[in-house]
Simulated scan of single mutants.
Amino acid sequence: MSQENLNFTAFGSDALRATFRLHASGVAIITSHTESNEPIGFTATSVTSLGSTPPLVSFNIARGSSSYEHLIVGRKVALHTLCAKNLELAQRMAGPKENRFLQQDYVLEDSLPIFPQASGVLVGTIRQRIEVEANAVVILDILRGTEGNQDARPLLYYRRGYLTATERLADND
């Protein structure tokens, strides 16, 4: 066993930010609607699969977000995975909420805004919200999805900016 002395120089929030700036995340868009069927949505980099049996996905959101109050248990949500060609869409959905749906580049399916240009789309129902301090974890039951664009270069968020993966290092055997 190695006896390296690690020099822990960052603590708490500073440590978290320093480490996660160096951790690449996939970029996604979450969309849904209000009680009056107005579209809502935002860019997320905290999306992860919880498992395939049953098919569950989670994402994180600040409880102070303008979208959070509309993400109620039982409501349908669309989760869009993004590729490099969706950069403008990711930036727009991360910007001011009043500008997110000005362009008519989405379609409505049961009042759910869907961006067909995304590399993949999953539709699910909110199963649970777990509130932790000023944040929440939202868990979705996945109902259906598109096959996805197998040739798309994934859009990643890394060091407070967007990039894409270009080199395959190894296959998982």
Results as ranks from 00 to 15, higher is better:
S2M: 09
Q3N: 09
Q3D: 08
N5K: 14
T9W: 04
T9Y: 05
L16Q: 08
A18K: 04
T19Q: 00
A24E: 07
A24H: 09
A28G: 03
S36K: 13
E38D: 11
P39C: 07
G41D: 00
F42G: 04
T43C: 07
A44T: 09
T45H: 08
S46L: 08
V47P: 00
T48W: 03
S49L: 04
L56I: 13
S58N: 00
A62H: 11
E69A: 12
V73E: 15
G74F: 14
K76L: 13
V77K: 02
L79D: 04
C83Q: 12
L89E: 06
K97D: 05
Q103A: 15
D105V: 14
Y106K: 03
V107I: 15
V107D: 05
I114Q: 01
I114C: 02
P116H: 12
A118E: 05
S119Q: 14
G124W: 05
I126F: 14
R127V: 14
R129S: 14
I130K: 12
I130E: 11
E131S: 14
V132C: 11
V132I: 15
E133R: 14
A134L: 15
N135L: 15
D141T: 13
I142Q: 01
Q150C: 09
D151P: 03
A152E: 12
L155D: 04
L156I: 15
R159M: 13
R160T: 12
Y162S: 01
T164D: 04
N172H: 10
N172Q: 07
